[in-house]
Write a protein that binds this DNA or RNA. Structure first.
Length: 793
DNA sequence: CAACGACGCTCGAAA
DNA sequence: AGCGTCGTTG
């Protein structure tokens, strides 16, 4: 505190904020009278009351971590700390939103919404904070190639750039898989190693080539005025490191820093927090649990939390060990499991509320059987005297691919379910196309967006013409769209291509008002803009036509999805408050025009879309069972949890076998899953599982043995129905598919595509057939035997 | 230049 | 089972 005079005033605009705050502190000094403190345990209270200096809260699963953070924020503010000097960082929007809601509720129980006690309080994700800091300071920091209208490239855009770069550098296919190149670049960025540094360190042939790719990749991004997810963190951290005045502004503004899930921070995030916290004895409070560190593979560095006391000497450490979430058998199972990790400081888990039913472990025959067992188990809870609602149940799995059989079984038995995949909506083809139009409207140098939509719908610009334009653009160091503006200069184009290119430029210019976002035809409404983009780009017509012709489910949904995108923009617009954080507003430099409000809003919208997390989609109010990966489950809790696929190679995943550290991370992942369960836990392992279309014999996960002990009930049902390993509840009225054969010419029915004729079948164990369906325009699809029913021959 | 079918490759968790 | 790429055809 001595480092930072109060009240800090980040800029002139905020002077008025420094006025004394109304404080409704509890009467008297006794914590028992204070509603913010009276129901806390002793260690929780110590964490909330801790005021100056660094604080590490080691919060075991279910120990009231969020409660401590929110109470601490509320307590700081009610005791006179200015809300705008508090910064809390989380990993997902959902976590941030929940924290914000709870703090607001504590400080402003009436919900007047205008409480000055929350004014300027910043609770956000690492990535959002970086996106905003970068936008605000990018001009001052003078990062070459980057301006305030930068685009955030997603994984697809990254892949597309990497593929092109690999091609250009003549690094061919199998030796240079784009995915692993991307991983190398991502790792480097998480370590704050830029392309130049990487090159300097590169010794062998392989890394020297990687350095070339990294450099070229980065150059492409900058040419497009784009950053990737890792850049958000790396560039912001480096900016704070290198620019003292920017660092000082942030340090002065944020006196109190809180970081949630600290065990999952990577080096860039560590440095970011460290730089914002500042020198001396900063008020940095981090909360986390080393036993729940599950993001090592994306650069999370568990030593950040293990060595916190070394980084911040004199830091206070408070351990929250009491579990308020799970029944005793669940907690005991979790404890037995995690004890097997060698690289770990043991922490006692204890609950003061003993009792509770046994943890069920069921060995099943195959994934269909497994799904049936899960369905039956859940259904039983709805039929008890005090039934559980669907929304109180969840299924966790290691990989997304495992959700399929569960989905089939839920659908077949009428159990409502939702999959927590936040990005799924934005990954649909039609939405990606619409967003690409919006992106190029906001930033015409966005080459990834350009490539996606330049010929969608087809407008006579094929691969050949585009390559010619791209070559010209590359030679002249232009973005491809800008090159198109001087299409006459591009050699070798047909008259038709020139014409199409000109019309495309006109289209985009119409949408953006030639980049000004001004003019009569451009309204101030974001939803209107999205609507116009979808219409005048031709996407609307293209997908309407396709829905009329095609009968595939996905084609029928596309027009609706586009309409949904307009609604989402309208909703964003409604909730959008340009000045919701005045102190982070971009100060407009002399002689520089302020960007038009619609453009500012469009940028904010695209940014929010880019930073959606899977976990953000978890919405218990939807009255359905939630399906999600173990990673997405972190931080959540459900009365009844089913964890499926506890098999060698799945959990632990086969790619984790070589390294002990990776295996221990798999064990922590399993631990995270178990500790999400409040009252009921089912764990399943299938003896046979179909992977890549082939049914394979499995081995039960070693974690099953490690969990076993008092309070865990085993049930081996793997041999119950010996004759029918492919028993399926999903498609009734069907004979045992294992015994069915579909010779070429057989007429079959498929639940989705209807009647078709078999044109080819795979031999033996690959139970697949190619079937031609008239219902989808005589297309031939490869399908599982299990989904087909013979109707004649 | 566009559309489509055949074929071959890969195959993890994510902001 | 899904995806990208290649080759053929319209």
């Amino acid at each position: 505190m001595d480092q930072k005079p109060t009240p800090p005033s980040p800029n002139q605009m905020n002077q008025s904020e420094a006025a004394p705050l109304e404080v409704f502190h509890a009467s008297g000094d006794s914590p028992v009278d204070d509603p913010l403190l009276c129901d806390l345990t002793e260690p929780q209270m110590r964490a909330v009351l801790h005021e100056q200096g660094a604080l590490l809260v080691l919060a075991a699963a279910g120990s009231g971590k969020t409660r401590v953070i929110t109470r601490r924020i509320a307590h700081l503010i009610t005791t006179g700390v200015a809300p705008w000097s508090v910064l809390a960082l989380t990993f997902t929007n959902k976590a941030a939103g929940e924290m914000r809601d709870r703090v607001h509720h504590l400080l402003d129980p009436e919900g007047s919404g205008k409480s000055r006690l929350v004014r300027g309080l910043t609770i956000t994700t690492f990535h959002s904070l970086c996106a905003r800091l970068l936008r605000r300071y990018v001009e001052q920091a003078q990062i070459p190639g980057l301006t305030g209208d930068y685009t955030i490239y997603n994984s697809d855009d990254q892949s597309s750039v990497i593929k092109r770069v690999l091609k250009r550098l003549d690094l061919n296919g199998s030796n240079w898989p784009p995915a692993s190149v991307r991983a190398v670049i991502s790792d480097a960025k998480n370590q704050l190693i830029d392309a130049e540094t990487y090159q300097a360190q590169a010794g062998d042939f392989y890394s020297k080539n990687l350095a070339r790719v990294y450099e070229a990749y980065q150059a492409e991004l900058r040419k497009a005025n784009a950053v990737d997810f890792d850049d958000l963190l790396m560039l912001t951290a480096r900016m704070l490191l290198q620019h003292e005045h920017i660092r000082a502004e942030c340090q002065n503004r944020w006196e109190y820093l809180l970081v949630d899930e600290y065990q999952d921070t990577n080096h860039a995030q560590f440095l970011l927090a460290n730089l914002i916290a500042g020198e001396g004895s900063p008020n940095i409070c981090v909360v986390g649990d080393p036993d729940q560190s599950i993001y090592g593979w994306r650069g999370a560095d568990i030593t950040n939390i293990l060595d916190f006391e070394k980084s911040y000497t004199g830091a206070r450490v408070i351990t929250l060990g009491e579990n308020f979430r799970s029944t005793e058998p669940i907690l005991a199972a979790a404890d037995r499991l995690i004890r097997n990790n060698q690289q770990r400081r043991h922490k006692d888990l204890f609950t003061t509320t003993p009792g509770g039913g046994a943890v069920q472990v069921v060995l099943c025959q195959n994934e269909q059987h497994e799904s049936d067992i899960v369905v039956d188990w859940f259904k039983a809870f709805t039929e008890t005297e005090s039934p559980l609602a669907w929304k109180e149940m969840a299924v966790f799995y290691r990989t997304n691919a495992l959700s399929r059989s569960i989905e089939d079984a839920f659908r077949a038995s009428g159990v409502p379910y939702v999959i927590a995949r936040g990005t799924s909506f934005y990954e649909r083809e039609e939405i990606r196309h619409a967003l690409a139009y919006l992106r190029i409207t906001a930033n015409e140098t966005d080459d990834a967006a350009f490539r996606r939509i330049v010929n969608v719908p087809t407008r006579g610009l094929g691969a050949t013409s585009i390559t010619r334009i791209e070559n010209y653009a590359h030679k002249n160091n232009l973005s491809t769209f800008r090159a198109m503006r001087s299409i006459g200069q591009v050699p070798g184009l047909t008259a038709r291509a020139v014409n199409s290119a000109q019309r495309f430029v006109e289209l985009i210019d119409d949408l953006s008002g030639g980049g000004t976002f001004m003019g009569e035809q451009i309204s101030g409404s974001l939803a209107d803009l999205v609507q116009r983009v979808i219409q005048s780009s031709g996407l609307e017509k293209m997908y309407a036509d396709r829905a009329r012709i095609g009968k595939a489910e996905s084609d029928l949904e596309r027009p609706d999805n586009l309409a949904e995108l307009i609604s989402s923009a309208a909703q964003f617009e409604q909730e959008y408050v340009p000045e919701n954080d005045p102190s982070l507003d971009v100060p407009v430099a002399e002689g520089r025009a302020e960007p038009p409000p619609l453009l500012v809003m469009l940028r904010a919208y695209l940014e929010s879309v880019s930073l959606v997390a899977d976990a953000d989609m978890v919405d218990p109010e939807r009255g359905a069972v939630t399906l999600m990966t173990l990673h997405a489950a972190k931080g959540l809790e459900f009365p009844a949890v089913a964890m499926i696929g506890l098999e060698e190679g799945i959990l632990p995943h086969f790619r984790s076998r070589e390294r002990i550290a990776a295996l221990e991370e798999e064990r922590r992942l399993c631990f995270v899953g178990i500790t999400r369960a409040q009252r009921h836990l089912l764990i399943t392992s299938a003896r046979y599982r179909t992977m890549r279309g082939v049914q394979e014999r499995t081995i039960a996960s070693p974690f099953v043995d490690e969990i076993s002990g008092p309070g865990v009930t085993f049930s081996d049902q793997a041999d119950e129905v010996v004759s029918s390993p492919r028993r399926s509840s999903s498609y009734s009225g069907q004979s045992d598919p294992a015994l069915v054969e579909f010779p070429v010419g057989t007429v079959v029915r498929h639940p989705r595509f209807g009647i078709g004729q078999v044109t080819w079948t795979s031999a033996g164990e690959n139970a697949k057939a190619r079937v031609r369906f008239s219902s989808v325009g005589e297309k031939t699809l490869i399908l599982e035997y299990a989904r087909l029913v013979r109707v004649g021959s």
